[in-house]
């Protein structure tokens, strides 16, 4: 049964001089329960826009987004979001940052403590609970950002280029951790990235968006089980396929612009 269903989604941005930008055009997607889907595409193609619409942070112009057959109107407890630079509050300790969502929804302190303890352990943040974000590395901050989303126990986790701000080695570690957590927690994950290798390594399915106005250009099933090897020939080939498809999309756009 699909968790997220996106039907004929359109998004226009009002631009300057009354011109509108057509960001997303007729996006149709179904994401199954427990599936890990990566969205890739050329920069500026509206990956993050799509994610923010699903998160309920952004209004869409036309079409619908359904979560378990209920239209998404605004943010929802069932959807957790992990932001690009973690976006922790600098004035709160790591622990208080993780507790933020529970504070907002009035979860009793005792339950908060238990849940925080669980996710601090899961995200390898033990010993850093009382540190402030400025005292932590980018990787640790993003761990806290993920813990903050997971602690609310949402059905779906949306991740907007979560590992783009950390160095390569940290990124690899975080990827391994994400795979492990996802298997432990059985979450549906929608993951936006511009790193094709990351996408094929993590995902069950990779969605390639075309340049603006974005549509689903191509879908790739990555049908090998975890644990995967980064150097796996199948993955390397898939990645090459996607890279080739991106450049075809980019060429088309250039040609169109040229003839206009």
């Amino acid at each position: 049964m699909p968790t997220i269903k996106i039907n004929k989604l359109d998004k226009y941005y009002p631009g300057e001089n009354g011109e509108t930008t057509h960001a997303l055009k007729d996006i149709n997607l179904e994401i199954q329960d427990g599936e890990f889907v990566c969205i890739v595409g050329p920069s500026g193609c509206g990956k993050s826009t799509l994610l923010e619409i699903v998160a309920g942070l952004l209004e869409h112009t036309d079409g619908e987004v359904l979560l378990d057959d209920i239209p998404v109107n605004g943010t929802s407890r069932d959807i957790g979001v992990v932001f690009q630079d973690a976006s922790l509050y600098p004035w709160k300790t790591i622990k208080k940052n993780i507790a933020f969502g529970m504070d907002i929804s009035g979860v009793p302190k005792k339950e908060q403590e238990e849940r925080i303890a669980k996710y601090v352990k899961m995200m390898n943040l033990s010993g850093f609970e009382n540190k402030y974000p400025s005292q932590l590395s980018g990787g640790m901050r993003q761990r806290a950002g993920i813990a903050r989303a997971l602690v609310m126990n949402p059905k779906v986790i949306l991740m907007d280029e979560p590992f783009s701000a950390v160095d390569h080695l940290t990124r690899c570690t975080l990827q391994e951790e994400l795979i492990r957590i996802r298997q432990e927690e059985k979450k549906t994950v929608l993951f936006v990235t511009h790193d094709i290798n990351e996408a094929v390594y993590l995902a069950d399915r990779v969605i390639l968006l075309s340049p603006r106005p974005s549509t689903v250009q191509e879908e790739y099933d990555i049908s090998i089980p975890h644990p995967r090897k980064r150097s796996d020939e199948y993955l390397v080939q898939k990645a090459a396929e996607i890279v080739a498809a991106i450049s075809i999309g980019a060429d088309k756009q250039e040609a169109v612009e040229y003839y206009i």
Binding site: L57, T75, V81, I104
Partner: peptide, 12 residues
């Protein structure tokens, strides 16, 4: 920061 406000909105 706009991100700080987005986080608040995500958590309703």
């Amino acid at each position: 920061k706009i991100e700080y406000l987005k986080v608040a909105r995500v958590f309703n």
